[in-house]
Amino acid sequence: MMELTIIWSILIAQIMLGLAMAFAFYRMVRGPRAQDRILGLDTLYINAMLMLLTFGIRTANSIYFESALIVALIGFVSSIAFGKFLMRGEIIE
């Protein structure tokens, strides 16, 4: 009984995070302007990192932690680079 509850609640959490990723992806694809797309990308990678952490809890494997940390690092750098580009670059929308 307890095992079923654990498995199901983690599954529900993962479904919710998947929905969150889908919404962020929608904003990234549709976003009326470039800054909306970057904001969508930022939210997408944060949610992906949380998803990796829930996978880590589910399988009790700490290798997922490392990948979550790497996703956070690379996502931060890419968002900063895009933001800097918006301040200076010529963007054709």
Partner: peptide, 27 residues
């Protein structure tokens, strides 16, 4: 379980906000 589901729900609410708000500064 409680913390995971609650955290995922908060993240989902944040993404719903990203979808729903009308101006960039609200998003």
């Amino acid at each position: 379980c409680g913390l995971t589901v609650l955290g995922a729900a908060i993240a989902l609410i944040g993404s719903v906000g990203l979808l729903r708000f009308t101006s960039f500064y609200e998003r």
